[in-house]
Nucleic acid binder design. Structure first.
Lengths: 152, 152
DNA sequence: GTTGAAAGAGCATAGTT
DNA sequence: AACTATGCTCTTTCAAC
């Protein structure tokens, strides 16, 4: 196991979630420690898997993904069918999230596509996946808030 | 308006979504152009708002956010109530996404918390917000897939 | 769009307390 | 786990093509 995070770790994480490209020097200024110390901590956070990666955030409308929707999926919940579903959904680039949820629906799937027409095509492909019983799609009219996970 | 993205732009975007901290030099190798060209394109993508930012991705279980849930919110859909709701939800750190959706529910809210107990507390706070009629919460048992938006 | 060069900023690796 | 000091890499900004 890894040590619990202290206040300095959390300050670094918050800074890196806000700006993932900032330099170690800038981080050192933020937390008030020397560069090597901050670098050691950063490497530890990365090695311990607290930081899973760094990603550019793209504007959905600029990359033909201005339409979002959530698809509640029901399907045969056998282990085999699940594995096949996971693989098939992962191969759909517009499928951004898949959550196994409690309740009558098996999966809750978040998709981002260019238009409602593209959404229709995506839904056709999802419904054509083996063992799918039904889909119930909720279209997003407007995204009010979408932000990355912050520490504590 | 800005120019449409070409294949080089998209290659750069894909590389930066996969690793948002890589250097211009590394990017130049990926797309097969010189550093100055890549740097010019990168600055354009940032200025045009195609790239909205760079963020560290944190492991939910490592930052006390191992429990996810989706909350379907119904409330008085007046403009005034909406503004108040948006503000109140934004002030909840565990609320990561808020989507205004079509259908009977007004908002679909994604939350990440440390435990089901913390989820109960969060739901109490959401239900206590002015004009809320009802909430319907779906707990995530397992997140199968969660990935950032990629270009086309 | 390219190459090349020079200056500054940032990073990594020590050795020390 | 923190610091200072040093060499090295990368970035940045020119120029000229």
């Amino acid at each position: 196991m890894s040590r619990p995070l202290d206040d300095t770790d959390r300050a670094m994480l918050r800074a890196l979630v806000a700006d993932g490209r900032q330099t170690v020097r800038a981080l050192a200024k933020v937390v008030g420690l020397s560069e090597p110390s901050v670098r050691d901590r950063l490497q530890r956070l990365e090695r311990d898997g607290v930081i899973e990666g760094y990603h550019a955030e793209l504007a959905p409308t600029e990359v033909e993904a201005g339409t979002a929707a959530f698809v509640a999926l029901r399907f045969d919940p056998s282990k085999q069918a699940k594995d096949a579903m996971n693989k098939a959904l992962t191969h759909e680039p517009c499928v951004l999230e898949v959550h196994e949820v409690a309740g009558e629906d098996c999966y809750l799937v978040k998709v981002r596509v260019s238009s409602t027409e593209a959404l229709a095509d995506t839904l056709d492909r999802i419904r054509a996946m083996p063992s799918v019983h039904s889909t119930n799609t909720t279209i997003v009219l407007r995204t009010i808030l979408e932000r990355p996970l912050l520490p504590r």
